[in-house]
Each structure stands twice: as C-alpha cells, then as structure tokens.
Design a protein around this nucleic acid. Structure first.
Lengths: 226, 226
DNA sequence: ACCTGAACACCGTTCAAGT
DNA sequence: ACCTGAACACCGTTCAAGT
C-alpha cells in the first residue's frame, strides 16, 4: 500500500499540461508580493501551484532563470506616458514616477531588478526615452547620460528606503509601541537639531510618494534649471 | 577508534578564550568584503575563525545579532569631517561623501545597513549634523528634514548602483567579452538616443565616485540654491 | 564559561523513474 | 514531454555533552 504523500497536501496527481511559464511567473510574483523575498522558495512556489517541487524544473532551468523572467515581466507592466508633446521636464518626471511606482508595488522585486543586468527590451525603451528627453531639455551629451544615471540612482534609493521603512514599521508594530518613527532615544545636548526637528521628522516619516516627489523636484531643478 | 574530524581541517581543539565578540566581527566583515554576502555563513564564519560552528553561539545569540553588530561597527568606522567652520554646502557634501565611501568599501554591508533600523549613536550623530547644516544653510524646518531624506536616499541608490554594477562587470568578465558596458544590442530605429549617445554611455559607465559627485552637485543645487 | 559534534528542519538541485 | 519522490550537499539553530 504505497500511500503517496504521507502527511502532505491532499493533492494526488495533477492533470497534464496544467503548468506553463506564465502560470509559474504569476505564482512567483504573488508569492514575492504577498510573503516577501525570503519566502520565495522553489518548494513554496510548487506548493502555491499545487504541484510537486520538481515540476517547475520542466519549464525553467532553475531559480535564477525564474528570477530573471520575473524581473523581465515586471518591467513589462510599467506604463510609459504616451503623450509625445508637453514639457520635457514633466515627461521625465512622469517616467521616473512610474518606475518608482513599480518598485513600490513590488517591494521584494526591487533587489531582483537591481541585482541583475536588466537585459531585455523594456528597460531599453525607458532608458532611450529618458535620454532623449534630457537632450531635448537642453542638456549636453555627457550631462544627459549623467543626469539619466542620477535620476535612476535616486529612484532606486528612494524605493529601497520606502520598502525597508515599510518592513521596519511592520516589524515595530508587531512588537508593539510607536518607537517614535524609528528614531531611538536622543539626548538634547548631544543632538540639538534632532530634538528640535522631532515633530517634522515624525510628520515626514510616513509618506513615501510625497517625499519622493520632493526629492525628485530638487534633483530635476538642479539638473535642468542650472 | 573515534577519529574526530573524518576529513575536515587539521584543527583539533582550540585553546580556551581565543574567541570574543570583536574577533568574530572582524572575521565577519572580512568574509563579507572578501567573498560577498551570500558567503556569509555561520559555518564559513567558524571556519574563518578556526573553530567549530557552534562556538560562535557562545558570544552571539545568532546570525541576526551578528549582522546587527556588523552594521553598528561599520557605522563607527565613518570619519566625520571635524572642521566646524566653512560653507554649509561643502560640509554637507563631505558628510554624504563619507557615507558613500563607507557603502562603497563594504559593498555587501549595504543591505545590512539599509534593511535594519540602524539604531545606535553613530547614525544619530550623522543625522543630527546633516539636519543642523541644512538648517544653517537657510532651509525651513520641513525642507531640512525632506532634504536630509533626499540626500540619504540618493546616496543609498548610488551605492546600490555602483555595487551591483561592480558585481555585474565581474560576472561579465568571468564569462568573457566586453558586452559593451552592460547594454544589450539595440536597433538604431527603435532606440535613437541610445545609439546616438553610445560613446558617452560607455565612457560614463565605469566611474562610480565621479558620477556620484555629479548627481550630488545637482541635488544640492536643487536643494540649497532654489 | 566556553567549545564540541550530532541532529533537526529547512534550502536548491540531480537523478532515475513513472505516465 | 511532463510530472513524481528520493537523495545529496548545503543552510541556521537546538540540544546534550565534554572540558
């Protein structure tokens, strides 16, 4: 009496051809967004799909290949502003904003997107559009390339900050206690500015997108209005 | 005949009290900087120290506690500019630059420093000094807090970018082939700006600190010179 | 108190096997 | 071709034991 799964899920055997790359990627993104990067496991992925662990290996070479495909797919979801006219500065802000939104909506995918080469057509289109807009805003050739990099670096940094901050806050709430917006106890003599600005620090601490907008404004002013 | 380590290292038994928290943190940072974050393993750490895996647990509660302590220690290594006079803008740039340098010199520690609350006095001093300088540069209360955040976000993003780029480049070199500075093949009709600016892109691609400086200039101009 | 190995519950992946 | 479980080499950590 060879009972198949001694104490596992009630799954017996899945009908053929239920699995395909798209369904696997959907499940991977669900897993990533719902449970975080550390829960993105080949075994958990298979469980999510209601399938044996090794079934996934019929469609992808391994976890790395799935991660690459997820990054690719997420970049596809970005909606680029279609309007071809208007102020270059506004259009630049639109594109960068939608990048930030992508990172915010898929927090655990941020490291996927920053850690690997980002090949694929989607990223190239974003790059090309930004470079063209920076040029048409009057920047020189090298300035445009440097400006593009500065914009992306700021965006990634702001997204990392927001993402980690969110996790930090969740962690603190789970423990209990406000913990005054992540700032440890301070002594007025040694940290005068910190104590003086405490109310503003607490106020600003929460809102990710608003803060991103503010920094983006500053950066664009410095880039374009010099 | 109970032979101790069947095929392990020739270590037999270490004299007492050779281990202490400082030596463990030294080894952890060495491991992190030399072999990368994914090589930072409790077993590898013990090997580095010439000690059994579980010996470390006599000094730290677990891997998380070691990671926290490493982050703390790295923040201590930051050298804050001592000069108390001079242009606030220059002094702000100095502090942010030394933060960027810290991140660059300890690439694998970047996620350690961004993923956890960053408690401890060292971080607080940096924050307090930056806030004070932004205020004395003429910024309002909320502007100073937002400006501080923007600066840190940009710094983290630039460091992530540089770090990941370094790994990417090493990976590509190992495979062989220049791979034209990380940019995949492009078609001139679809990506005009990218093709047009190819030489500048290749030129800028390499230098991390120079690019950081440029973006920092822009951001500071937008922040202070508005 | 400090260090040890064995053992447990995980992980990605290889392999031989089923349909 | 597609899916399966067993097995292998890893991981962090618990535990009982040595000195």
């Amino acid at each position: 009496m060879p009972t198949a799964h001694p104490a596992r899920s009630p799954r017996r055997r899945v009908p053929r051809n239920t699995l395909n790359p798209d369904r696997i990627l959907d499940a991977a993104i669900t897993l990533l967004d719902r449970d975080g990067a550390e829960a993105f496991t080949m075994r958990a992925l298979a469980e999510e799909l209601g399938v044996g662990t090794m079934a996934v290996y019929s469609h992808f070479r391994g976890k790395d290949e799935i991660s690459d495909a997820v990054a690719q797919r997420l970049l596809t979801e970005i909606e680029l502003p279609a309007a071809r006219g208007g102020d270059p500065g506004d259009r630049i802000a639109d594109i960068v904003r939608s990048l930030y939104r992508l990172f915010s909506e898929h927090p655990s995918a941020l490291q996927l997107l920053t850690s690997r080469p980002m090949r694929g057509d989607e990223r190239i289109v974003v790059t090309d559009q930004l470079l063209g807009l920076l040029r048409s805003a009057g920047l020189g050739r090298t300035e445009a390339v440097r400006g593009y990099l500065a914009l992306l670096q700021y965006t990634v940094g702001a997204a990392v900050w927001t993402t980690k901050g969110r996790r930090r806050r969740a962690c603190e709430e789970a423990v209990g206690g406000q913990a005054e917006a992540g700032l440890p106890t301070t002594r007025p003599e040694r940290h005068p500015s910190l104590v003086d600005l405490a109310p503003e620090i607490a106020e600003v601490g929460d809102m990710g997108p608003v803060q991103f907008e503010h920094g983006l404004d500053c950066l664009l002013r410095g880039l374009l209005g010099g």
